[in-house]
Design a protein around this nucleic acid. Structure first.
Lengths: 203, 203
DNA sequence: CATCAAACAAAACTCCGGTTGCGTTAGCTG
DNA sequence: CAGCTAACGCAACCGGAGTTTTGTTTGATG
């Protein structure tokens, strides 16, 4: 007897992983196609070619699916330019953010926003998600401060937020198309505010 | 015999109006308490003390309820300061917006954002709603331009948008609390961008 | 390669919210 | 104030998504 693995062993390979990828992919697809409130476990299961009881057990509900998708997306970081000029680096960054919003990830962001309104877990997950990204993007601002292009009191993360805010505004509120011109303007406005001393550490 | 009103006569008073108010009020309450996805016609009808078939017939679905609520809220305009200084007027305006978001109207805005993601009618309604408000708020900016406090090329509505964007960002994305300090900073940043020439008419 | 449990599939069941038909109430007008 | 009908209330119906149960497949290990 005794040819057995210890109980509690996870199986992150083979079929298990295939199912996970299929489900994540189906989630992303349905989200992009029909929006968040069309995202039911049943549909996801169908689209993934998987029994819905499987999806239900592993992710519990659509919020769980969103968390999984968020983890997936968090893996792909935004490329960060380093041209020697903050203005240029932030302009490029803004354009990258616009690109990010334009793809299937845009639908994910919308769904997250909608869900996080009344789901603290999702809200916390999303905060962390953006905190990480903003922290990383803030590197470009720090380089600008070090080069003397921006005042030293400037809060780098706050600049990134100021840069992103108008993009969110357009995407969520007015649903106007996002393009490179809008991105460039957002970056310029953030820099102007920073240089005016409006985005300092202890305002 | 002829004791009859012409067919097609509407009855916007009495019971009909009472029902409308009860439903709008219930919608606002449920929204503030449990969020948009808990907003079902059945619950609204219960809370309003009305048959659900009535709600269904008059408003069709929750999006219809949102439109009704939006019309209701649109009635109450934002007070507009006129102190003689754009900086001060916009600071006060930002604080008023924060107040607006803090009340039950904040929940409405969140619901609208969520719904408008995949509902063109709601999206159009919301765009109009904000266009009106922004247009009105832009009066303060125009006064500033007339007084020479801001460059004449500045786009007044764009300034208002820049002012509101960070507030939306906090409310929708990071769920950080909105207070007067945040409001003042948003106003200052918008003004800085405007003075730097970033928010001009034909950029 | 034999075995055990983790993970999955299939199907029945439950429940809640949308939908519909019909009888009742109550604004509007002459 | 009499009558007409818009608007409402009630109750049964319907469908679809969540939930649970049971049986099957398959990845990990000695």
């Amino acid at each position: 007897m005794v040819h057995r693995p210890p109980p509690g062993t996870l199986r992150p390979q083979g079929r298990t992983e295939r199912v996970r990828q299929a489900v994540v992919s189906a989630t992303r697809g349905l989200l992009a196609a029909d929006g968040y409130d069309a995202l039911t476990i049943e549909r996801v299961a169908d689209a993934a070619g998987v029994a819905k009881s499987t999806v239900y057990r592993r992710w519990r509900d659509t919020a769980g699916l969103m968390m999984e998708l968020m983890r997936e997306v968090a893996g792909a970081a935004i490329p960060l330019a380093d041209s020697g000029s903050v203005d240029e680096d932030l302009r490029v960054l803004a354009i990258e953010i616009v690109k990010f919003f334009s793809g299937t990830s845009g639908a994910m962001v919308l769904a997250l926003v909608a869900e996080s309104v009344h789901n603290p877990d999702t809200a916390a997950g999303m905060r962390e998600f953006w905190a990480e990204r903003n922290e990383r993007a803030a590197i470009a601002v720090r380089r600008g401060i070090d080069r003397g292009e921006l005042p030293s009191e400037v809060d780098p993360v706050e600049v990134i937020r100021a840069l992103g805010a108008p993009l969110y505004y357009r995407m969520l509120v007015t649903h106007e198309p996002l393009d490179d011109v809008v991105a460039a303007r957002a970056a310029a406005a953030a820099l102007a505010a920073a240089r005016a001393g409006t985005l300092s550490r202890s305002d």
